[in-house]
Amino acid sequence: MNFPFILFLIASFVALGSTALAITGRHAVHALLYLILSLLSVAVIFFLLGAPFIAALEVIIYAGAIIVLFLFIIMMLNMGTRDHNSDWIQPVNWVGPGVMAALLLAVLGTAIFQGNPGILDTRVVTPQEVGISLFGPYMIGVQLAAMMLLAGLVGATHLRKRDH
């Protein structure tokens, strides 16, 4: 039980708890704040797993950019930050999804705990290594990602344009 492991456990619990609150929240803004908390704790885990670059990206892009985008939209719609449809709270609506989620978790758990996956003995993978790999063997992926971003840009612009 070394210190990083304890940190890992704490971060895990924070992530799980805040995610649970995020998906069940009634206020969209509150839910987003919980989501940020969850993302930050996942970033901590990334750091612990020897991926400091990704941890930084997680904070900057996920918690920074994407969530801010959500906030923008919520403010634009001015939807009063409350989810007025509350019949999803009713237990009967949880039965089907609950069973399905339990099944999913069971299957995933079986897959994970089957056999002997081994021990994490992490070393830091530096941004330099990531960069060399990204612009080396994964060049085609970068280009595809660029194209997809362009498509997303055009698509979003087009969708907004047609409204007016």
Binding site: F5, I45, I112, L120, D121, T122, V124
Partner: peptide, 19 residues
Amino acid sequence: MLTAPLEYGLFLAAMLFTM
């Protein structure tokens, strides 16, 4: 750095995904 069973990390991911 961190030394932990691999399953813990993967199971955390699975649980977040399920949520």
